[in-house]
Structures are given as C-alpha cells and as structure tokens.
C-alpha cells in the first residue's frame, strides 16, 4: 500500500513539474526557443503575486488574476524587444541571451526583495487533505495536478482548435510562407510568449504556496521543467505532462528508498529515457 501512496504522491508532484514546463513547452514547440530564464520568470511571477497580495490585501487567487495580464505584457514585450532577435538556426544566441536574462532577473529580485525566503499565504487550505481511495493526499497537490491537466488541455484546445493555434503551427513550420497568409511571425511569437507567461503565473502560485521561495531558486525549477519537456518530445503538450509525471514518480520512489536520492533519481530517470529515446517519448513526425 505504501507503494501506491508513493506513486500517487509522485504523480501529483509531476503535475507541479508539468505546470512549470507547460509554458516552456509551448514556446519551445513553436519557435525552438530554449528559454533559460523560464525558472526565474516563474519566481518573478511568484513575487508579483506576493506583492499584489501584500499591497492590495486580496486572496492569492485574485492576485493571480491581476498578475496574469501583467505577466502576459512582460512576456509579449520580452519577445518583441529581445528574444525575437535571437531566433534562427544557431542555438547559441537564445541560450546566451536567456542566460543573461536569468541572471538579470535573479539579481533584480535580490535588490528588490532581498534574499529572504517568502511564501504565498493561502490559509487553512494549505494543510487540508482528502482521501483518494486508500491514500490520503493534500488538497494543494491535488489542485496543482488538476490545474496542470486543465492548463495543458486548454493549451491543446488553443493549439489545435483555434485560428491562433493554426497560426502558431504554421509559423513554426514555415515562417516565410506564413507571412504570405497575412501572419506576422513576430507578433504571433510575442503572443505565444505572452500566453506562456500566463501559464507561468499559474505555476508561480503553486510554487509560492507549496514551499518557500527566494530569488535564486529559479534554475533548479527550470531543470525539472526542461526534463519534462524533453522527455515528452518537442511540441507535445500531453507529452510534457507525461514527462513531468515520470520525473515526479521517479523522485518520490527514489526518495522513499533514501531521502537523499530523491532529486538524483529524477535526473537519472531523465537520462535513461533520453538514452533510449533521444527525441523524447512523443516527438513530432517531422522536424
């Protein structure tokens, strides 16, 4: 029975990682942009939520609603002004620029909010738990997982059912021909990054509610997110969820054997999957 519990906890943890990864997956899938600042953007959004909560005294969920459009604007501007210039066949410019961005965000947050660790207060719900068959799970982890599924479902609908989603795929396939259809690649990319930042805001809520955070924790979150995206396969959103779950389950299983092995087993699961499927579990047929 203890195994069932461990695996359930792992799956739920995977939801958190998938949430960290969903925005990354969207951007990576559409413009092959490796955003090394993604983790720091999650932390930035967490501070934004916290700031709104403290200043306006509203509930964190309301704060998310206020922070999301701001993060959309940040993402849109970032893409329009900076990231767009790095796109191309060479992977070095996006890697270096987003790495620089990561350092800028971390240190700007350090200046603005100090290195003290923070937490987004959610009240009684933080410790509530529900019985899920034989196992008891925390309400927050369950909500996290549900949000991950919902976010990925919504992104999939957007991607495959809307005209904007068609434009995303068309620009990703062939930006030149897409222009002949009246699509402006730069503005489509900016919209995609904006949407990714809305997802980042949702991820930030759970990041800040579930554990303490400080300005420097972004890169550690980023690495799980990348693992989830790569395991899932480029551009596959459900694959990203699967990837998150694999990392999450591997971590809780490893952690149940020896707490010090928790993070390590997640990384090893990633390496093993990649050793067998170098392009991830659900790669696109063409590339």
């Amino acid at each position: 029975m203890i195994w069932v519990d461990t695996i359930v906890q792992g799956v739920l943890l995977g939801g958190l990682y998938a949430l960290f990864a969903a925005g990354l997956s969207l951007v990576f899938g559409i413009m092959r942009l490796v955003n090394l600042a993604h983790g720091d953007l999650i932390v930035l959004a967490a501070y934004l939520i916290l700031f709104v909560v403290t200043v306006l005294g509203v509930h964190p969920l309301v704060a998310v609603l206020l922070a999301a459009p701001m993060m959309f604007a940040i993402g849109w501007g970032l893409q329009r002004l900076i990231l767009t210039r790095t796109l191309g066949d060479d992977i070095l410019p996006p890697l270096l620029v987003t790495f620089g961005l990561s350092i800028v965000i971390q240190n700007a947050l350090l200046e603005g909010f100090t290195a003290d660790s923070q937490r987004i207060p959610m009240g009684a719900i933080e410790t509530a738990s529900v019985a899920l068959g034989p196992v008891s799970v925390g309400l927050i982890p369950l909500l996290t997982f549900a949000s991950a599924v919902l976010v990925i479902f919504a992104l999939n609908q957007l991607f495959y059912r809307t005209s904007l989603g068609r434009a995303f795929r068309a620009v990703s396939d062939d930006p030149t021909t897409a222009q002949l259809m009246g699509i402006r690649p730069a503005s489509v990319f900016a919209t995609a990054t904006g949407i990714a930042m809305v997802v980042v805001t949702i991820a930030a809520l759970y990041l800040g509610v579930r554990s303490n955070f400080d300005p420097t924790i972004g890169p550690a979150r980023l690495i799980y997110a990348f693992e989830a995206v790569i395991i899932g396969g480029l551009g596959s959103l459900w694959g990203t969820l699967a990837g998150g779950i694999i990392i999450g389950v591997a971590q809780t299983l490893g952690g149940s054997i020896n707490p010090e092995w928790q993070i390590l087993s997640g990384h090893i699961a990633f390496l093993v999957v990649l050793l067998i499927w170098p392009r991830g579990l659900f790669p696109r047929a063409f590339d």
Partner: peptide
C-alpha cells in the same frame, strides 16, 4: 506549394484567411 505540414488540408485552407 509549401503547404504547412502540421496542418490538415482544411486547416491549410483556413489559414489562408488569417490576415484578411
């Protein structure tokens, strides 16, 4: 021709109206 490989036939047609 330059069709979009990730789009179905119908989506390829629909994308033609994106800008107009």
């Amino acid at each position: 021709r330059r069709l979009f490989p990730s789009l179905s036939v119908e989506e390829n047609l629909l994308i033609g109206t994106y800008g107009r």
